[in-house]
């Protein structure tokens, strides 16, 4: 693998994770927060493929990435289900409305 390719992929990884964290910080909607989490996970997937390639075991890196996709889907489903419940119960998706417990 070209050295430059590795650096490019690394930059994409950092970019995706960075955009994800930024989305988490500024979003005013639960759906966007979930999208931000998904973006971070996509960056991490790429990191695993890259790690597999660098350490000379492409198969392992890719199979780890596949496993992460499966687990992450489950988390996303649970998160979206909760977002639906929040919308029905609170009438909004804004996380700032979730303040019944603050004191």
């Amino acid at each position: 693998m070209d050295y430059l390719d590795g650096v490019t992929i690394l930059l994409v990884v950092l970019g995706l994770v960075g955009i994800g964290i930024y989305t988490l910080m500024i979003s005013r909607s639960l759906i966007k927060i979930i999208i931000g989490m998904q973006l971070m996970v996509k960056g991490v997937l790429l990191a695993f493929v890259l790690a597999g390639r660098i350490s000379g075991n492409m198969g392992l890196g890719q199979s780890l990435a596949l496993t992460i996709i499966v687990v992450d889907t489950i988390v996303a489903v649970v998160a979206l289900a909760m977002a639906v419940r929040v919308r029905r119960r609170f009438g909004t998706l804004d996380p700032r409305a979730l303040t019944t417990l603050r004191r």
């Binding site: 994770v17 994800g20 988490l24 639960l30 927060i33 989490m37 971070m40 996970v41 960056g43 991490v44 990191a47 695993f48 992460i68 988390v75 649970v78 998160a79 909760m82 977002a83 419940r85 929040v86 119960r89 609170f90 996380p95 979730l98 303040t99 019944t100 417990l101």
Partner: peptide, 20 residues
């Protein structure tokens, strides 16, 4: 619900950091 959402978001972000 509120406790669940808070817990889920924080914990899921934590697990992404672990993966990284």
């Amino acid at each position: 619900l509120e406790a669940g959402v808070k817990y889920l978001v924080q914990s899921a972000v934590g697990s992404v950091l672990i993966l990284l």
